[in-house]
Design a protein around this nucleic acid. Sequence first.
DNA 1: GGCTGGACTTGGAACGTTCCACAGACGTTA
DNA 2: TAACGTCTGTGGAACGTTCCAAGTCCAGCC
Lengths: 350, 350
Amino acid sequence: MPKGKPPTIDDVATSAGVSKSLVSLVVRGAAQVSPERRASVLRAVAKLGYRPNAMARGLVQKRTRIAGVLVSDMNNPFFADVVAGIQAEARVQGYRVLMNTGDRVPEHEDEAVETLLQLRVAGLILGAPMMESALVVRASNEVPVVVIGRPARATSVDSVADDDAAGAFAAVQHCASLGHRRIAHIDGGEGAGAMERREGYEAAMRKLHLSGQIRVARGAFTEVGGHQGARELLDQEPRPTAIFAANDLAAIGALNAIEERGLHVPQDISLVGYDNTSLASMRHLSLTTIHQPRHDIGQMAMELLVERIEGGRVKPRRVVLAPTLVVRGTTGPPPRERTHLRRAGRGGRK
Amino acid sequence: MPKGKPPTIDDVATSAGVSKSLVSLVVRGAAQVSPERRASVLRAVAKLGYRPNAMARGLVQKRTRIAGVLVSDMNNPFFADVVAGIQAEARVQGYRVLMNTGDRVPEHEDEAVETLLQLRVAGLILGAPMMESALVVRASNEVPVVVIGRPARATSVDSVADDDAAGAFAAVQHCASLGHRRIAHIDGGEGAGAMERREGYEAAMRKLHLSGQIRVARGAFTEVGGHQGARELLDQEPRPTAIFAANDLAAIGALNAIEERGLHVPQDISLVGYDNTSLASMRHLSLTTIHQPRHDIGQMAMELLVERIEGGRVKPRRVVLAPTLVVRGTTGPPPRERTHLRRAGRGGRK
DNA sequence: GGCTGGACTTGGAACGTTCCACAGACGTTA
DNA sequence: TAACGTCTGTGGAACGTTCCAAGTCCAGCC
């Protein structure tokens, strides 16, 4: 049961027999305080259970040392490591982190960002936001903003992302090198970076002289999205022999759809994801995917933010990290060109 | 690039030619304002891009309408739905949500909670916290606290959890009814609710007259923890024929360990998880597990919080929701009692 | 013994809101 | 016409900090 009123700095001052200014100095760890006074203040702080009021502090200082973080999808373990990277760097820099999520609903994301801005956070890190970029720019008029996972266009916004074109190329080329030609893509819909991956896929197909085989199904960065996209692709004749999904979650959804059809991975169809989340490395799933340095991404995002907040940098920075292909069990050579008889046997991959 | 100073309520008042009090009324949507003034205030707000300063507001109101949420593990999709439930109810009640995570490190959790308390959030929802319960109680002296996933003892703390004993019993009984006797448990270590599930397992074993078969391996609510626990169990002679893991993540880790040994699920060994996360329902994994109503849990937690904040309730409430067994593909009858020749064949389950 | 200067300490003015008591304007009623 | 409400709108006092200029002490020095 919360007790009456939390003690204020004045209560502490009275109890310790000093001025509130001195209490403030002690609490903030200033050097110029005599040991005796410091001790007595500290004693009073402990006795009363004093906790500085961040609102009052922030109000007078007009700055916060809080980084606001928006996470677009808590279901995606991708963000767990990104946030860990953010937190690690924040700790080093003396910042605190406050998160919020919009659950992939743009309007909810707007609200989440609004909440953070009203609190006057020192800066904003947007993790693969779905919200309109006009609103991102608007936010960047108030505080420094770093976007993760989609390249920013506005000069007031920094971004950290992997090289989606390179990642997509690696995925497509891997399939092609295994002998696949009908390599399709399930895209990420409105998701951050979805366009880049789709274009990367198309460019890769062209470069590999497979322009005629380009097939893109509408999806999302979710299991459901991947499932729908895969169903669309599996209905096509001839059916693709390899699918490159926009992220691991979508790949898992696609895998479900493929197995529902009684098809097997990779015997009947190869599958590549993106992000190398903890899911992909599950031995049982063993998903071939594109690795992103998630922890580094988070850390870098925080570094960029601090550069703007404290260094006063105004020139935008676009950090692009290199993705790498991780080959696991969901890719293999394409099936021999179709025979009349449709395989109906059981027995999964591996 | 952030511009000079964000506009204040005074700027708006000047621009609209009214007093700041009136601006305050308009911004908060008060009724007693003439249409013309309201319009001109709104115009000024839009023109200047005014955004109320939540710190100043909170300072004078001495309350916040912000619920602080601690998520113990962002890797666990369990929390995605819980948070969604919290957010949904918060929206209804006119609250905003601010999250933080401690990444399963108790000290980090303490910091996260401290950050929230300094901001003077109206209440705290702790999602399966690892932190010491003494600190939870201390927090509850400041603001209402609801703990998710572990029954609270202190009278100042509410809790929402499923009935772990019932869930554990359902899991064990399911295995027993398939004919298993050597049913082992991988526990959740220090995790919230781990003890309850372990005790539930032991009680179930006793009730089913399998006291002699009780085997508990030390684990954690993570993939790594499940992996270690499973290795420990698989080294035992005779080896268990069924494993009940503390949660889905641990079950997945256990599955990896089992497959590393060349064993198959459920032919050689049955596996049950807990939480029925999105992972469990992946067709490819198809994990038998115990379902928890995650969204409801989050919603209920928020309701309890508001009851305390606004209703002034002081009597603790312990909400217990009923878990249900979800049978999928990782459980089956035990293998026939061991022959001399060890199966070495390939060919997974399904 | 007074002066200087450094080490400590302090009072009071911000910070941007909300809240509250009160002021004007205007119509209604006795 | 005076008294009285009812609407609207306003000024100024909080709220709990930090910051800044200025104050007090006291040792050391001339």
